[in-house]
Design a protein around this nucleic acid. Structure first.
Length: 488
RNA sequence: GACCCCUUCGUCUAGUGGCCUAGGACAUCACCCUUUCACGGUGAAGACACGGGUUCGAGUCCCGUAGGGGUCGCCA
């Protein structure tokens, strides 16, 4: 049996004995009608963090009661997304559709108890009712005549839906952990449908029954569900159950301030992965969207678990900002292990070419210099290509091409010759020889370095020259320099 | 339209009546570092939506206005 307590934090430090401490149980409940989008990922994150913070459990429930729109591909996409982010549930995911029988049972019990009724209204009647309400400026709520009608008057030939009897007088206040106290007049509540004409349970019924059966103590979800909370609250009450603590977090908006929806550029987490973002960066970014811990920006998962709580969650929607995500990603990229990054880069570059051992070794050796200059794995892979493929002349990069014009290519070739008799192919020796070369030619070192960079990497920007040469090796370096053609 | 929610620099936010001449981060600009590009460092510019109250004192509390968002399905 689970007991609710008003201040979860109180038992986090409370002695474990006497009274069973309430164990926090949260859930992330996506509907498999599409990919796991970024807003869903944040909801999952918050549920995960909250459960971890209080040493509770975090569960996943797939809301697949809409058999029409739910697909296997979507389920797989959501699983993949959660796995990538490290936000899988503590127990195997529960499929809501499998509990349909149980949901219907609850509805029938409500019917038996007189808390629900069969409604025979036709769609035409429903439409007329709604239209009239809207025209009169009163709340658009269905007032079914069947609520108080004698069941014996039921027309034949119509499969009735089962509606709940919501209170009509008074008001209800929900103490939302994020939104604060929210009060709504019962006039605004309608007798929503529990069971469809075909006897199948609706979402509103299923969530409540499942949340209850799963022992969910805290429902943390997008604030688009705020008004649903009131309907669900009363359903709990009518069932004789204790409602959970609700926390409705603001939605994420796109850069233009509009709701981030599937048709307005909302991307699945797989898209972020493909763009080259690291899961830890995405999580850190999402965490800071609507939540803060003083001036902290870079927050490890351990710190997040330690610090996260609902009262600090802001109440206004935040816009998604790729620039900040990218900056944060750059930070995590620089912190990431070279071996991990090498695997990520190899995976990407392998799509277009075959990499041999020499190539992967160069990538791993050069990763330190490479990752200091990239913000995404995509940029990292792009910038690493020169370690594998020789530049194609004439260079397409105009800035690099310019470095090889006006005698630049000749300088590169000469420098290559000067390097030929080096005893040891080490960074320091290469540097010493090259600096001497510049002195002998009586030109600034930059005049030597830049053409060399262009000849070797095909670009005007790259990791340190000596590092590049050392990793490329004597043979490859000299070969690249010797074949550098003049540009103009 | 009805109801509910929201409103601090361009963006994410700190701020819970005096510590705020409003702080940090990203982005922008300048300079420094430097073989390039990044990183890093220094600095600049940049916000309490508006109007009334309450108070000795308001970004912080109350009311209104404006703007934004959400919900109003036999979808979830």
């Amino acid at each position: 049996m689970l007991h609710r307590r008003p201040f979860p934090k109180a038992f986090a430090t409370a002695p474990e004995k006497e009274k069973k401490p309430m164990t926090v149980v949260t859930r992330f409940a996506p509907s498999p009608t599409g990919f796991l989008h970024i807003g869903g990922a944040r909801t999952a994150l918050f549920n995960y963090l909250y459960a971890r913070h209080f040493g509770g459990r975090y569960l996943i429930r797939i809301e697949d009661t809409d058999r029409q729109r739910s697909t296997e591909e979507a389920i797989a996409a959501i699983r993949d997304g959660l796995a990538w982010l490290g936000l899988e549930g503590d127990e195997p995911a529960i499929f809501q559709s499998r509990n349909a029988t149980r949901h219907a049972e609850v509805a029938r019990q409500l019917l038996a108890d007189g808390q629900a009724y069969r409604c025979y209204m036709t769609t035409a009647e429903l439409d007329a009712e709604r239209e009239a309400a809207r025209a009169e400026g009163r709340p658009v709520r269905i007032r079914s005549p069947w609520r108080d009608a004698d069941p014996s008057e039921a027309p034949a030939g119509i499969d009735p839906v089962v509606r709940i009897k919501m209170p009509r007088e008074g008001k209800t206040t929900i103490a939302d952990k994020v939104q604060g106290d929210v009060t709504i007049d019962h006039e605004q509540l309608d007798d929503f449908i529990l069971l469809r004409g075909d006897g199948s349970p609706t979402y509103m019924l299923s969530v409540v029954v499942d949340d209850h059966d799963m022992g969910i103590t805290h429902v943390i979800r997008g604030d688009d569900h705020l008004t649903n909370a009131f309907r669900q609250y009363h359903l709990y009450k009518l069932c004789g159950w204790e409602p959970p603590v609700f926390a409705h977090i603001p939605l994420i908006h796109g850069p233009d301030g509009a709701k981030l929806s599937k048709r307005h550029g909302a991307l699945g987490v797989d898209a972020y992965r493909e763009m080259g973002y690291l899961p830890e960066a995405v999580k850190n970014y999402l965490l800071r969207l609507g939540w803060a811990h003083g001036d902290d920006e870079v927050i490890s998962e351990a710190q997040a678990i330690d610090w996260f709580d609902l009262p600090q969650v802001g109440r206004s929607a935040a816009r998604f900002d790729f620039a900040k995500l990218e900056n944060l990603n750059g930070h995590y990229l620089r912190e990431a292990e070279d071996a991990r990054l090498t695997n990520l880069v190899v995976e990407r570059l392998s799509r277009e070419r075959t990499l041999d051992d020499v190539a992967t070794t160069r990538l791993r050796d050069g990763m330190g210099g490479l990752k200091a200059r990239a913000n995404t794995v995509a940029q990292l892979a792009e910038s690493a290509i020169f370690y594998i493929d020789r530049p194609v002349f004439p260079l397409e990069n105009p800035k690099a091409a310019k470095l090889l014009s006006g005698g630049g290519a000749a300088v590169a070739r000469e420098a290559g010759s000067a390097l030929r008799d080096l005893d040891r192919w080490l960074e320091e020796d290469i540097e010493a020889r090259l600096r001497r070369f510049a002195e002998e030619k009586e030109i600034g070192f930059g005049k030597v370095a830049q053409p060399l960079r262009a000849a070797l990497t095909g670009s005007n920007a790259s990791p340190g020259l000596f590092e590049v040469m050392a990793i490329l090796g004597r043979e490859e370096t000299l070969a690249r320099l010797a074949r550098t053609p003049d540009h103009d």
